[in-house]
Computed example of a mutant assay.
Amino acid sequence: MSNLFDLTGKVAIITGASSGLGADAARAYAEQGADVALLARRKDKLEELAKEIEATGRRAIAVQCDVADEESVKLAVKEVINNFGRVDILLNNAGVATVGSVETMTVETWDKVMDINVKGIFLMCKYVIPHMTERNYGKIVNIASINAVVANKGLALVRHSYNASKAAVRGLTMGMAATYMENGITVNSIGPGLFESEMTAGTLFKHDAFMNAYNTMSPAGRPGKKGELNGTILYLSSDASSYVTSQHILVDGGMAIV
């Protein structure tokens, strides 16, 4: 049983790895023995993290990538294969959230959210899955959100494009899971509740009324802490979940049930 979460010899790609939950996941993968390819647009941040991880004895590469751009994704995946020769795990973590209703947001804002949150996963999977299929093995974990199944009423927190994009991630996860399980590839998604990150620090965490209401309503009485998402990520990325696919696991302190 102790070997179920062992990732020794595995290669993991993490998108949105320059900070927050993505960087935490990259460290967790390395701690379990995986070599990691760190993808994001800010290469300087990636290089800092790569040095930190390599100091622990694991291999890490920093690859600048815009997940919404097909050519950028193609080149990034090619670089990973050239360096490691394989991809065992793909964590699609890159994402963006913007405040606004369908009445108030611009088309440009809608397109940006959908491009990064949905098209980005499509493109990463499009170019990674063939390498997984060749070896009849792969673990794909898509970071969706609690906001795929719940929404905020307050005008200052309405995020219709985010709701739509994260629900789409859930649908895409199910479709790919049904198609690729026979190729040894599992595809699952995670719905984090409120965690402090670069994205939420300047938005949700700045609204005292929202935070007070959240902490009052949440069965946990608080947002998620640093590292509390890693266990679920590792479970879905390891052989511990070899017969698990198309699942959507909420990591939200019970918030979705109240």
Rank of each mutant, 00 (worst) to 15 (best):
N183Y: 10
M176K: 00
N183D: 15
M217S: 12
T200Y: 07
S197E: 10
L194M: 15
E182H: 06
A178Y: 11
I190W: 03
N183A: 14
G202T: 08
T173E: 00
N212V: 05
L194Q: 10
T203S: 14
M217C: 11
T200W: 06
G202A: 11
G202K: 06
N212R: 12
E196Q: 15
G221D: 09
A220W: 12
M181N: 06
A213T: 13
N183C: 14
N215Q: 11
I185P: 04
L194W: 11
G175V: 05
E198W: 07
P192H: 01
M176G: 01
M199F: 08
T200C: 11
K206A: 07
T186W: 01
M174G: 13
S218M: 03
T173F: 00
R222K: 10
A209D: 15
F205Q: 04
T173Q: 02
R222E: 10
G191N: 10
N188E: 04
A177W: 00
G184K: 01
T203K: 02
A213C: 05
T216S: 14
N212L: 07
P192K: 01
G184H: 04
T173C: 04
G193K: 07
G175Y: 04
A178L: 15
F210E: 03
I190F: 08
N215G: 09
G221K: 06
G184I: 03
K206R: 14
V187T: 03
N188L: 02
K206F: 00
P192A: 05
T200P: 06
A220V: 07
E198M: 11
V187P: 00
H207C: 02
A220T: 07
I185E: 03
Y180K: 01
T173W: 00
G202I: 05
A177S: 13
A213H: 11
G193Y: 09
G193L: 13
A209Q: 11
F210P: 03
A177P: 06
T179V: 10
K206E: 07
N183R: 12
